[in-house]
Simulated assay, not measured.
Amino acid sequence: MHFCHSSDIWSEFPELSAGVLHVNGIHREVSVANHVAEFEAMAQARLADSAEGELLEIQAWRRAFSRMGLKPTQYRSASEALLRRFRKEGTLPRIHPLIDLCNAASLAFAVPIAVFDLARVAGHLEVRRAAGDEIYMTFAGEIEHPEPQEVIFADAEQRAHARRWTNRQSGHSAVRDETGSVLIVAEALHASAAADVERLTDALDAAIRATWSIEPRSAILSRSVPQFDC
C-alpha cells in the first residue's frame, strides 16, 4: 500500500508540503487529554491575536479552493472549519482518542489533517483529480459522486475517501472503535509549509508514541519525494 499525490497536483500546487504517518496498534482505551489540552492552548493563543481567516495557513487554502473553482467561504478546509467551531464553542466534541488528538493538532497548527482506517482503503491512496464516477459515502451513509476534475483522495477501487481535497472526508474509512491501522495525512500550502508540517508531524509522532507505546512510520512528502510506502 502506498500514498501519493498525482503529478498533476504537484504541477498545480508546487508549494504543497505533506506530512504522513502510518500507525499500527491504535485502540481507544487510552487518554489523550493532556496532549489535546496542550494543542488547544496553542490554538487559543493564536486565535486571541487573529481570527482563523487571517491566519496564513488558512489563507493559503482559501486561495487553493478559489483556484479549484470553489467558493472558499462555502467550502472550507477541515482546519478552518475546526478553528471556526473551536472559536465559537471553546471546545470540540470528543470522538475517538486518535481523532481528538489529530483535531487538536489541526487547531494548533491551522493545518488540515486527515485520518484513514487502512482496513477500509483498497490498494493505495492517491490525491488526484476525479473522473466523476468514483464512489463517495457520506457520514450519514449516502452515496455521492465527485464532480469531474474535483480533487479527491482515491483508492484502487475508485472509491473517494475525501472530497474537495481537504474539505470533507468519507464515512467509509472513518476511524471506528475497531480501527487498528491508520494513515494520517497533514497538508499545507503556505510559505513556511515545509517547516510547519515537519513540526506538526513530529508533534503527532511524539504524542502517539507516548500514548499508545507504539512507533509510527513517518515522512515528509514534496515534489521531489512524492510517495510514501506503508
Rank of each mutant, 00 (worst) to 15 (best):
Q158S: 14
P72V: 02
R168T: 14
T138R: 00
G141N: 02
R67C: 09
L98Q: 08
I143N: 11
L125K: 06
L56S: 15
R94G: 06
V115M: 04
L204F: 05
S213F: 07
Q74T: 12
I208M: 05
A156C: 04
W165I: 05
Q149V: 13
M42Y: 01
P14D: 11
E144T: 09
L55H: 05
E178I: 13
H22K: 12
E89P: 08
V182E: 05
E40K: 01
E126I: 15
H35G: 08
Q158F: 09
F13M: 13
W212V: 03
H190M: 02
R159T: 12
A156Q: 04
N24I: 13
S6M: 10
R28K: 11
E12N: 15
G171Q: 08
G180R: 13
A188S: 03
A110N: 01
E134F: 05
L56F: 08
S77G: 03
F86Y: 01
S6T: 04
D100L: 02
E40F: 00
A193G: 02
W10H: 04
G90Q: 00
K88Y: 10
H161C: 07
K71P: 10
P226G: 02
P148W: 09
W212M: 05
E15D: 13
E52F: 10
C4G: 12
A60H: 01
Y75E: 07
E147N: 08
V115S: 03
S218P: 12
G171Y: 08
A43F: 00
H27W: 02
W61A: 08
E80A: 13
E54C: 11
F228C: 05
Q44P: 04
P226M: 06
F116M: 04
S222H: 11
P97K: 00
L118E: 03
E144K: 07
D205H: 15
F86T: 00
A206W: 09
G141A: 00
T179A: 08
D196A: 09
L16K: 15
Y136F: 06
L70H: 04
A114M: 14
E15S: 15
E12W: 10
R85S: 13
F86W: 01
S181M: 13
R128E: 10
E12V: 08
R223V: 03
S181P: 09
S7C: 14
H172T: 10
L221W: 14
E54P: 09
A193S: 05
R163C: 04
P97C: 01
P146L: 01
K71L: 14
A110C: 05
S7H: 14
A48M: 06
G19I: 01
F109G: 04
E142D: 15
E134S: 09
E80Y: 11
M1S: 06
A156G: 03
L101C: 11
I152M: 02
I99K: 02
P226K: 03
M137A: 07
S66L: 11
N167Q: 14
S106T: 06
A119D: 15
V225K: 15
F116N: 04
L21G: 11
Q59P: 11
